[in-house]
Design a protein around this nucleic acid. Sequence first.
RNA 1: GGGCGUAUAGCUCAGCGGGAGAGCACUUCGUUGACAUCGAAGGGGUCACUGGUUCAAUCCCAGUUACGCCCACCA
Length: 1000
Amino acid sequence: MTMDKTFNAAEAEARLSKAWIEGGAFRAGANQSRDESFCIMIPPPNVTGSLHMGHAFNNTLQDILTRWHRMRGFDTLWQPGQDHAGIATQMVVERELAETNMRRTDFSREDFVARVWQQKEKSGGTIIEQLMRLGASCDWDRNAFTMAGAPGDTRHGHEASPDFHYAVLKVFVDFYTKGLIYRGKRLVNWDPKFETAISDLEVENIEVDGHMWHFKYPLAGGATYEYVETDEDGNVTLRETRDYISIATTRPETMLGDGAVAVHPDDARYAPIVGQLCEIPVGPKETRRLIPIITDAYPDPDFGSGAVKITGAHDFNDYDVAKRNGIPLYRLMDTQGAMRADGLSYADSAAKAQAIIDGAELSEAGVDQINLVPDAYRSLDRFEARKAIVAAITGEGLAVMHDVTRTDKESGAEITETLPLVEAKKIMQPFGDRSKVVIEPMLTDQWFVDSAKIVEPALEAVRDGRTQILPEQHRKVYFNWLENIEPWCISRQLWWGHQIPVWYGPKERSPAGGGDGSDATVERMEFCAPTPAAAAELAKAYYEGDYGIIVEGQGAASSEQPVIQLVRDPDVLDTWFSSGLWPIGTLGWPQETEELARYFPTDVLITGFDIIFFWVARMMMMQLETVKEVPFHTVYVHALVRDEKGKKMSKSLGNVLDPLELIDEYGADAVRFTLTAMAAMGRDLKLSTNRIAGYRNFGTKLWNAARFAEMYGCKPAPMPETLIQTVNKWILGETARTRIAVDDALGQYRFNDAANALYAHVWNVFCDWYVEFSKPLLQGEDGPAKAETQAVMAWALDQCLLMLHPIMPFITEELWGSIADRPKMLVHGDWPMFGTEIADPAADAEMGWVIGLIEQIRSVRAEMNVSPKAKTGLVMVAADGSARTRLETNWALISRLARVESVEWAEAEPSGAVALPLPGATACLPLAGLVDVAGEGKRLEKALGKLGKEINGLSAKLGNEKFLAKAPEDVVAEQRERLAEAEAEALRLRRAQERVAALG
RNA sequence: GGGCGUAUAGCUCAGCGGGAGAGCACUUCGUUGACAUCGAAGGGGUCACUGGUUCAAUCCCAGUUACGCCCACCA
């Protein structure tokens, strides 16, 4: 069978992929021949996701390491799986519903979740197929899912996944029991689109054009004070009588919820009015609220007016100030970011708020009933309300005014107008990273992980090197975030996810009338347990006495005894809480599985920098808290794949390269090799199709080299004990050096170095030289030499295939199979382990000499415009015998590649010849008649110029006593040697110059 | 406001205390049966700037400039 002229990537990739998977080539432990294990956890892509360039990059690197270890006989597992991706996935389904004008609330929770499971079945397999097309050698039989085992689980596509749901709930319960998780009413980031709380990390602060309005808060009862501004030296710059305090805000709609105005305690301007009341200038005049002017360290006297309105329920800074000063928190908005319409009437609310100012005490729930949104603004969207409020205040003359001078277009006169002070300002505004809508700080009940309590081991593990972060610059980022860790809000008001395993019952032990749980939202008992039955057990113990316990959704009461109804917390957990358990969860924890024992802690995590906080840090904390071990020994953080201009790939820019389209066009190997070759640690890569095409050509080159080998019958065969041919000895050494370089590079996660070493070896050494050198031997009459070369050629090619396989699995597997029938596929090939013991220094030196000679002859011929077809003679002036031996043993090679047809030996260099310096000899090309005298003169001139510079530099250095005294001996010796060589060559060049001059 | 990163050939980037490299692009030449998705030869760089350390700096240190990224509550 002869090989096809080209590699048919599309056909071969599909066929080989199938063969690997059906043959179980990727199973955990496949090809194992040693004790050590090697395990990588895939960063689980979203179930609804599809493969983008980042995935392609990330998974290529993981696959390289996995294949490399598998070939080296490690007990290897690359664990695949998907993430349920709470918000992202629910969003997909809700969007679909929206097309038919339906909402999630049109369904029961159970039905909606069932729809999401259907969606998951529909699209969950896509990314797996795409990863398979990339060649990812995951153990697909173990495909896991972060919501496996949760109610409604269809097990589709992740049949073997452990009960992840149980593991997640168990960790929640454990953390709860240990006091690491708590529930409380806190100000959280609220996404009005998805109507859920989100964590700090899910908020993107983006600079937008905003406005800062300045409004007057009149002092109560028309009081006045003398407002005095001074400059740095204490000189009075402004003195006026005011009956108001000036307040700046970028969000006027929140004024309705103000609880106080704060000034800095040292701010002399406002000292006269501290303790007084001022009026919020919004709403029906007769019921405007009065709020106190207080002091707090928070306001910066140098910013704005120096006075800050305190809206505790709608701003994070204000929240802290309010907490410190006992200022009530008034919630103004509903879950969709519209102004509230629920709760008490405005009049009642204002009255109650006033009562609080006057000293009345209200329960938390009582305060929440207060709705300070006037009727005119109720139900308005927050941005509509903002407009209306600004208009109302301005119309009433309570905006701070300032003079604006402009030049009238028609008359050219300068006109000064007094206008409301509205500063156009760049402000950092928070947006939901998924919803892209403005996030609202919102006062709600949420669950939190008290991260500060579990952070220390995660810091310590990186500090002491149990977990290594590469590249190292990311360590700082990691430390910095963890050292300043904030509580992690883990509850989400969604339906898709792990429902929080907490059940509520009435606080009182004697629920009158059977305890219908009507006040359960106010004061209640929490029962945290991984299952409803366990929760009921806990409740039974608490409600000691003769109660029946009814757990939500677990059937009705049967007896006549009083009944306690347990209601489950409706919220689900942040996706990252469950993916934070990915390493142990996929290995079957909390069962003590064999996999856990073999593969945990895992070896390396390969991930993008964008999820260091989201995921890596959380995994560290959660694994260390749960099983007291680091989840992985190394974190390799890769950079971003950008477009060829360095722009981030984005749909809106339209510069997205689809890895699947690239695979279709260039083949998976070309895409993989490109990404690998560009994977310099810590540096973004700019991907261009041009580059991919180049590496596709590399595959073709390899293919053709194999065709050449096949053509000359180079089949894998035992090599002779002793090699005779120098080229064959030499290629062994070259191969060994490459093997060392590749292993070295991969061992240090220097993927680009590995790729480049292989590229250079295959193309520049194997193809450019060895294949060419082999031709006279393979085509010649010398039987033993031919046989030896065939065997060595086959061997050297095999080594190329073996070493390239982790990066280019398909073409190498295809070649491996077409070269010979083998006991094992290449995917299970035995990675070369030989070192330089198989090299032969004498052969290396000899081939170096031969290559040098050929290159010099070619160079001269090209520059002299000698026709490539013309053959020339060669005159050798030998300084010692070794040169003669070298030339004669390699004459066939030299003659062919340098196109010289004869050689004669002379005592002196003939005139009219170009002299080429070599170790131990001078090679002379008698090109009389062919020589372009002027050209040769120029060439020599140039070469001498270069040499002159080098000689000057070296002599200066060697003339420097300090250098001789302080530099290491070997460096001095090396410089001396270089100087001697340079001088010798310069001498030869000068003699050649003379001869050329004589010719002219 | 903090923190980090990057400046090397026309382009994209490796490298890194003692001889400036690769790929692409460019120029010239080439259909010798592996390969024109190729071969051979070649041009091209005060390694951003300024100081310092050193016998020696593209590389280490400090500063400057430009660009990029991350984090952060200035109303």
